[in-house]
Design a protein around this nucleic acid. Structure first.
Lengths: 344, 344
DNA sequence: TTGTATGCGTTATCAA
DNA sequence: TTGATAACGCATACAA
C-alpha cells in the first residue's frame, strides 16, 4: 500500500502542492471554493499529512517531553494523566521519557532537545540538584514539577510547581507532636537525596526543634543505596529494621504514602496495632491513603491542580513568551484513623 | 544558537556529508581512520543527528505506540515501565497515547499509523470487541496485551498476551466456594464490557454452576455508565450500594484489586469486619493487595513477564517477520488474610 | 574508499 | 489567488 502524499492530492485535484498545503493549514490566501474541493478529496482519500516531514520543515517540533525519574511512583500517575490530556488537547505530541535513577536528567534532556527538537520539558521526580550553569544549558522552556530546588539558583532561569516541602512536612510532624508524640521515627530516602526527602527531613527537624525535642539520629532511617526509595517495599523493609532495632518510638512518619503503607504492613505483621501502638503519617495524599485500613493521615498534595498549573506555565512560556514563574501550592493535612493521642 | 548539522561536521572535517553519514551509521565502506577523525569532531561539537530528518528518509519511523485505555489503572503501571524500558533499549521511540474510554481505539490507531508511521502498536486496556474486518485495517504489527478478544476472530491476524480470564476468574471463585461461601457477590464493570469484566463474570458463573449454586442476579453488581470502572472509588460505591440493598452475601469478589480495596473500605466503614463478616477476593495481584490490611486474596497476573512477552512478540513481528502468536500466562491464586472459612 | 547529487513530504518564498 | 521551486537534515545510489 503506497502511502498517499500531498502530491497525489494535488494531482487528483489538478492544483499545485502549495495550494493543497494552504488548504490543510487554513491559510488565508485561498478561495473557499478550491479549499472545499481539496478538502473533499482529502477526506475521500483519507489522507493525513506526514508529521515527520512537517516537523522537518518547522525545525521545531510540537513535542513536549516529560522526563520522569521513578515512573513506578503512583504519585506521578495522576499527573501523567493530566499532562497527557493537556498536551494532547493543545495538539502537541507527548513524549514520555523515563530516566534511570542513576542517570543525569539534564544530560538526557539536552540530548532529547537536540534529537527531537522539543518545544518544552517537564521534569518529574528525582533529586534535582544541578547548578545554575548546567540549568542554563537547557535552551527550551521547562518546568520542574513537584521538585524542590535549592535556593541559590537564579529563579529567573527556570519555572517550578511544587508544595513547600519543608513547611508541609513540618505540618505533618507538628500534628504528631500535637497528639503527644515525641519519639517520632522518620523513614526517608537516601542521605544524598537533598531534594524531596531532604527537605521533608528538614521539616521534621524543625518541628521537633521548635518543641525542644532532641533529635534521635537512630530514628531517622535512611534508605539504602540502589534501592528504589519511594515504594511500599522499601517502607516495609525500613520499618522492619526499625522494629528490630528496639529503638523506642511511638509514631512513624514516612516521606511518602507508599512508604508508610509498607511500614504499616511491617507494624501489623509484628503484632502491633495502628494507631494504638504506633501512629503513622504519610505524605502525598494518594487515594490509597484514604482506602487503606486504617485510613492514613497524610499531607495531600493537590496533584491534579499542580499538574494543570505545570502545563499551563509551560504553555505560557512556549506560546506567550512569558517569564519563568514559580507556583507553590498549599498542602492539606488530612488527619485520619492512623494516628492516636498519646497518653503519657 | 544555530543548530549544527551533518553538513557543518562535513565541512569541519573536510569530507563529504555522505562520509559523515557513514561514520554515524557504522557503515562498512569507510576507513577506520576517517571514521575516527569524524567521530572525534562529532563529539567535540556535541552533535546529534536530527531524528526527524532521519525518519523522513526512512519513511517508517522507529516508533512504537502504546495505546492505553484507562491510563489511571495502576495495573498498567508496571507494564508501562517495562514497555518503556524495552522500547528504549531497542532504540525505538516510545509513544504513549491515552485513548478516552468512549473513543474507538482502532480509529486512533489508524490515525497514528499514518501520521507517525508507526512500526508497531501495543494495545492496553479497554474493551476490545472489534470484528475481523476492522482489525485487518491495521497494517502494522500489533499486540493486544492483557486484553482478551472474542473467539471467532481469526487468530492469525493479531497477536495477544493475556491470562485466561475465565479460567483464572473461576479459580478465584472456586477458592471462595471451597471456603464454604455460596452467596458470593461480584463487582463488575459495565454490562457492555464483554472483555475483561465479561470474561471474569463468566468464570464466576461457571464456578457457581459447577457446584449447582444458583446465580442471584442481585449479587452481580455492574458499574454505572460513564464511571471509570476499575477504581477504588467505584468499588467503594458499588459495595456501599450492595450493603444498603440488604441482599445477603458472605463474600465479595471484584474483577480488579483496585475495586476490591474500595469495597473493603465500604465494608469496614459499615462496621463489619474482613474476613470475619465478609471475605473478599480481588484480581490482578497489585502490590497493594499484599500490603493492604488485611492482605487481600487475589489472582496475580505476572505483569512484568507479560509485558516482556508483549514487547518480545512485537519485536519479533517487526524485526523477524514472525507470525502472529498468542501467549496465555498462568495466573497465581494468592490466598491471604481476606478470606475466611464459613461455618454454617 | 570517498564525494556529488537526488529525494523523502512538507511548508514558505516568490513570481505569475 | 495560484503554482513552481527551494529549502528542512539526512541517507543513499551512483559516479569518481
Amino acid at each position: 500500500m503506497k502511502t498517499i502524499t500531498i502530491k497525489d492530492i494535488a494531482k487528483e485535484c489538478g492544483v499545485g502542492v502549495s495550494t493543497v498545503s494552504r488548504a490543510i493549514n487554513n491559510h488565508p490566501d485561498i478561495s473557499d471554493e478550491t479549499k472545499e474541493r481539496i478538502m473533499k478529496v482529502i477526506r475521500e482519500n483519507n489522507f493525513t499529512p506526514n508529521s515527520t516531514a512537517r516537523n522537518l520543515k518547522f525545525t521545531q517540533t510540537k513535542t513536549i517531553a516529560v522526563l520522569i525519574k521513578g515512573i513506578e511512583n503512583p504519585f506521578f500517575q495522576k499527573m501523567l494523566k493530566v499532562f497527557e490530556e493537556e498536551i494532547q488537547n493543545k495538539k502537541y505530541t507527548f513524549l514520555l521519557h523515563r530516566v534511570d535513577s542513576n542517570q543525569d536528567e539534564l544530560e538526557v534532556a539536552l540530548q532529547l532537545i537536540k534529537e527531537r527538537k522539543l518545544k518544552g520539558i517537564i521534569f518529574l521526580g528525582g533529586c534535582f540538584s544541578h547548578d545554575e550553569k548546567r540549568l542554563k544549558q537547557i535552551t527550551v522552556p521547562f518546568v520542574l514539577s513537584t521538585i524542590s530546588i535549592f535556593d541559590g539558583v537564579d529563579k529567573n532561569i527556570y519555572s517550578s510547581v511544587s508544595v513547600d516541602d519543608i513547611k508541609e512536612s513540618k505540618k505533618a510532624v507538628d500534628c504528631l507532636c500535637d497528639y503527644g508524640h515525641e519519639k517520632i521515627a522518620i523513614l526517608a530516602a537516601q542521605p544524598w537525596d537533598t531534594s524531596i526527602s531532604g527537605l521533608r527531613i528538614e521539616g521534621y527537624k524543625r518541628a521537633l526543634a521548635e518543641r525542644n525535642i532532641p533529635i534521635n539520629k537512630n530514628l531517622i532511617r535512611y534508605t539504602l543505596e540502589e534501592v528504589n526509595a519511594f515504594t511500599m517495599e522499601n517502607g516495609y523493609k525500613l520499618m522492619k529494621e526499625l522494629l528490630e532495632s528496639e529503638e523506642e518510638f511511638t509514631a512513624v512518619y514516612a516521606v511518602s504514602d507508599s512508604m508508610v503503607i509498607g511500614a504499616g504492613k511491617a507494624i501489623l505483621e509484628s503484632g502491633k496495632k495502628i494507631p494504638e501502638d504506633y501512629s503513622i503519617m504519610g505524605f502525598d495524599g494518594l487515594d490509597i491513603s484514604y482506602y487503606y485500613n486504617p485510613s492514613i493521615s497524610t499531607i495531600r498534595q493537590p496533584v491534579e491542580d499542580m499538574a494543570k498549573e505545570t502545563s499551563e506555565i509551560l504553555f505560557n512560556l512556549i506560546e506567550n513568551n512569558a517569564y519563568n514563574s514559580h507556583k507553590i501550592f498549599e498542602g492539606e493535612l488530612l488527619v485520619r484513623q492512623s494516628i492516636a493521642r498519646l497518653n503519657k
